[in-house]
C-alpha cells in the first residue's frame, strides 16, 4: 500500500568563488535621450540575469527598466566578467553595475547642481529626473542633464567599475579564513507517497523557503527555485549516468537517462524569505544553484518517514527502495524467536 511521509532539509550555500578572485566589471552610459546602456561580460542563459542587472542599473539611475539596454557577453567589446557561475551574477556583477551606475550618476549630479542651483548632496535621481531631495517639483529631466554633461561641460555621463567579493584566504595550518563574502540559506520540505509493494516514490508536494537577500525580481526567483527543485527531484529519484566496466557511458541519451517530465513534478510552494545583505546590490545575494541543494535530502528524509528505510545512494530508484524495505522486514522477522 502507499505510505505517506514528510521530510525536511536545510542548507547554506556560498555566493561566488572560494577565496580566488572572481571579479566583474561593467560600464554604464547615460544617454541624452534618457535611456542608459549597460555593458557587461556576463551571459544570459535564461535565468533572467540581464533583466535583474537592468533593474539594478535602472534603480540606481532613477529610470525605468525599459529605459535600460543591456549589452552582454561579447569578449571583444564588453568588460571582463567571471561568468554566470557560482550563483554570483546578481551579487558580483550586480555590484559592479551598481557602482558603475553610481559613477555615471555622480557626473549627472555635477551637471545638474548648477542647473537647479543646489549642492550635489541635495540631489536625487528618480522618475527619469534629477531632482532636489524633498522638493521634487524642482527637477530637470535626466536626458537633458546627460546632454548638458556631454555637449556643454564635456563630461559624458559614463561610469565604469569592477567588483570582486572580499574574502580572506584560508590559513593552511588552522583552516581559518573567510572563504566567501556572503551565503544564502534555504529549507525545503517534501511530502511523498511510497508504495511499499513496488518501492515506487511519488513526490506530491514541496515547500521551499529560500533566502536570497532582496529578491530583485521575485518572479524570476520563483522560476529559479522551481527549476532547481525539478533538478533535485531528478537527482533524488531518476537521474543516473551509467557506465560499463570499460568506463563507457551506456545511457548517453534521453531514452535511458530519465529526467523529470511535467508528470513527475510535485506541487511547489515557494516562499521567498525577506532578507537584506548590506554588501549586495540593493541587498541582493543569489539564488541559482542553492535551489537544487536541499531537494533530494528532503525527499530521502520523506521516504524514511514513510517506510522507515534509508537509501544511501542516489537516485533512490524503486529497486533500491524496495530492496531496503525487504531488508528491513527481514531484519525485523529475525528478531522473532523460533
Amino acid at each position: 500500500m502507499k505510505r505517506r511521509g514528510r521530510g525536511i532539509a536545510c542548507m547554506w550555500y556560498p555566493i561566488g568563488f572560494t577565496v580566488s578572485a572572481n571579479p566583474s566589471a561593467a560600464t554604464v552610459k547615460m544617454n541624452e535621450d534618457g535611456t542608459a546602456t549597460v555593458l557587461t561580460g556576463t551571459v544570459e542563459t535564461g535565468q533572467g540575469s540581464l533583466t535583474v542587472l537592468g533593474q539594478i542599473a535602472a534603480e540606481a539611475l532613477g529610470i525605468a527598466t525599459d529605459d535600460v539596454h543591456v549589452v552582454s557577453a561579447d569578449t571583444d567589446t564588453t568588460p571582463m566578467d567571471t561568468g554566470a557561475i557560482a550563483s554570483r551574477t546578481t551579487y558580483v556583477t550586480g555590484n559592479a553595475i551598481f557602482l558603475a551606475a553610481e559613477a555615471a550618476k555622480a557626473i549627472l549630479f555635477e551637471a545638474a547642481a548648477p542647473m537647479l542651483d543646489v549642492k550635489v548632496s541635495q540631489l536625487e535621481a528618480k522618475d527619469r529626473k534629477i531632482q532636489v531631495k524633498n522638493y521634487p517639483q524642482r527637477n530637470v529631466s535626466i536626458g537633458e542633464v546627460a546632454l548638458r554633461a556631454q555637449a556643454v561641460l564635456g563630461t559624458p555621463a559614463i561610469g565604469s567599475a569592477s567588483w570582486n567579493p572580499p574574502t580572506v584566504a584560508l590559513d593552511p595550518e588552522t583552516g581559518q579564513g573567510k572563504p566567501f563574502a556572503t551565503y544564502v540559506y534555504a529549507t525545503q520540505i517534501a511530502e511523498v507517497d511510497v508504495d511499499d509493494e513496488t518501492g515506487e516514490v511519488e513526490v506530491l508536494r514541496i515547500a521551499a523557503a529560500h533566502d536570497c537577500g532582496t529578491a530583485i525580481n521575485p518572479m524570476l526567483v520563483e522560476g529559479q527555485v522551481e527549476g532547481g527543485i525539478s533538478m533535485g527531484v531528478g537527482m533524488a529519484l531518476q537521474e543516473e549516468m551509467l557506465f560499463d566496466a570499460n568506463g563507457r557511458h551506456i545511457n548517453p541519451n534521453l531514452t535511458n537517462y530519465i529526467m523529470p517530465t511535467s508528470l513527475d513534478m510535485p506541487e511547489i510552494t515557494v516562499d521567498i524569505v525577506q532578507g537584506f545583505d548590506p554588501t549586495g546590490p540593493f541587498g541582493a545575494k543569489g539564488v541559482g544553484e542553492p535551489t537544487a541543494v536541499p531537494t533530494s535530502a528532503a525527499i530521502l528524509n520523506a521516504i524514511h518517514d514513510a517506510v522507515g528505510v534509508r537509501v544511501y545512494s542516489l537516485p533512490a530508484t524503486s529497486e533500491k527502495v524496495l530492496t531496503a524495505i525487504k531488508a528491513k522486514r527481514a531484519a525485523e522477522q529475525k528478531q522473532i524467536p523460533a
Binding site: 520563483e222 522560476g223 522551481e226 532547481g228 533538478m231 511535467s262 508528470l263 513534478m265 511547489i268
Partner: peptide
Amino acid sequence: RDALSGNLCRCTGYTK
C-alpha cells in the same frame, strides 16, 4: 501535465 509530458524542460520545473 499530460499534454506537456512529451516536452522535456531542464530549466523551469514546468510549474510556471
